[in-house]
Design a protein around this nucleic acid. Structure first.
Length: 437
RNA sequence: GGCCCUAUCGUCUAGUGGUUAGGACAGCAGGUUUUCAAUCUGUUAACCCGGGUUCGAUCCCCGGUAGGGUCACCA
């Protein structure tokens, strides 16, 4: 795999700060970060902020912070508006060389102005993409395209080529929209005498409705994923799998793993539709690896003050795939039993066709048995052993377990009665059972 | 529309000129001491279409179809 040349690897990711970073931004940064670091090279971040209307400093900040949260940091940072003199130097030189010329044009507003056009040599460009092979394009229909509004206002294709050349970029790893732009950028490279970098294009991430992930079409920002309580490891793992797979069946990869396993040439060719169910599964895999303390801390942090009790943690943990699910459990009232004595509907106490008298009797037996347990012997295990002793002698265990569970939780669907009882404690448990009879 | 890219289960994908086309998520079924959850086991499901090359094509070639990208004084 690695880069064979003696030349040091330099990659770059160049987002334009016109919105919050999303998974596509993460992909861009991640792939460049991985390849550079695999080859003992450097990864540059370039803020392509030459559009004064749409570019915002706060977006630049959000991109840097979002990526940092994922564990991705550039070795060097550039901002295009700081480099205007450099572009001007190249434009001037190109005009002097005759590879560009000033042309009088009329814009949309009807104003007549001088723009700088590239003198197209009209030839066939063949370039190599690391996963797609050789691609040939006749550049004749590109015409003499505009590379600057005027000598002081360079446009995208010119700045990209100049920056990549000036900063020594050896590998351009970017989204597949770059594929169609590559021929004209090569034309500019040749005009300024820049070395051609190695190209690798990765496919877009598509939203479930098959449209390209973008800033204003429903794509979640990295910050949103963070707020929803996803782990950065899960986001990274999910993202990389949308563009790359190993040769075997493994699916769990952290950045350190990827530094060993990732292969640029194995980047996929077709766009992947993101499926959050898989993300949720991945996230659960990662939260399962966390220590007990970390799990407690994260769950308690999402609970209302009155519910911040470690006894609730195990019950919650097995029901969530991301921390934000804790908030949903609270909102759905699934933890209400902890604060409020449930209102019991006697009908719902009945298990299948068990006679009411028998249910009543079972509850009384339960109260009596639990009453014999010591306050400090009221763990989930203790309660379970006590209740099962009775339940096992009944026609069906449900005729005791169901009413107990319902009496304690007030819900048709809830965690099992043993854990609820241990959370409530002896007194409260017995009080609720008596109240239900 | 021109040019370019792409096409394997619902989704992410592995894979090979001869395979029972493999895995994961989701789904479904069952076990797991009552329901939910968790967990375990099992299971449904795919090579876009048409030609060609070949003894044989999912795989190679051509065409079609579909999807995406790009053709800005945006990036």
């Amino acid at each position: 795999m690695g880069h064979q040349d003696n030349e040091k690897v330099v990659t770059r990711f160049a987002p334009s700060p016109t919105g919050l970073p999303h998974l596509g931004t993460a992909m861009y940064a991640l792939l460049n970060y991985l390849y550079a670091h695999q080859n003992n090279g450097k990864v540059l971040m370039r803020s392509e902020n030459t559009d004064p209307v749409r570019s915002k400093p706060e977006y630049e900040k959000a991109i840097i912070e979002g990526l940092a949260w994922l564990g991705i940091k550039a070795d060097k940072f550039y901002r295009q508006t700081d480099r205007l003199e450099i572009y001007k130097k190249y434009i001037t030189k190109m005009i002097a060389d005759g590879t560009a010329y000033i042309s009088l044009d009329t814009n949309e507003k009807g104003e007549t102005r001088d723009v700088v056009r590239f003198k197209n040599p009209n030839k066939v460009i063949t370039f190599h993409d690391s996963s797609r092979g050789d691609i040939s394009v006749d550049t004749t229909d590109l015409k003499d395209f505009i590379i600057a509004r005027d000598i002081n206002s360079p446009l995208y294709h010119l700045t990209v080529v100049v920056d990549d050349h000036e900063t020594g970029v050896t590998h351009i790893i970017r989204g597949e929209d770059g594929l169609a732009n590559t021929p004209r950028q090569i034309l500019i490279q040749e005009a300024i005498g820049a070395k051609r970098p190695i190209y690798a294009h990765y496919p877009f991430i598509l939203l479930p409705n098959h449209i390209k992930m973008g800033k204003r079409n429903g794509a979640k920002s990295i910050q949103e994923y963070q707020q929803l309580g996803y782990l950065p490891e899960a986001i990274v793992n999910f993202t990389i799998l949308l563009a790359w797979h190993p040769k075997d069946d493994r699916e769990l990869f952290t950045i350190p793993d990827l530094l060993k396993e990732f292969e640029l040439e194995r980047i996929g060719k077709s766009g992947a539709i993101l499926d959050e169910k898989k993300l949720n599964w991945l996230n659960r895999e990662y939260i399962k690896k966390l220590s007990k303390e970390e799990i407690e801390k994260n769950i308690l942090a999402r609970l209302p003050k009155k519910m911040q009790n470690v006894k609730l943690v195990p019950l919650i943990f097995e029901r969530i795939s991301k921390w934000g699910d804790v908030n949903e459990m609270v909102m759905a009232g699934e933890l209400d039993f902890f604060l409020k004595v449930p209102v019991v509907d006697k009908q719902k106490l009945i298990y299948k066709k068990t006679p009411p008298e028998k249910i009543k009797n079972n509850l009384e037996l339960t109260i009596k048995a639990l009453g014999n347990l010591a306050e400090n012997n009221f763990t989930t295990e203790d309660v379970k052993n006590t209740l099962m002793l009775i339940a096992n002698n009944l026609e069906s265990r449900g005729e005791l377990l169901h009413p107990v569970r319902y009496a304690l939780s007030g819900r048709d669907q809830s965690p099992d009665p043993f854990i609820i009882a241990s959370i409530l404690g002896k007194d409260e448990t017995i009080t609720r059972l008596q109240k239900a009879i």
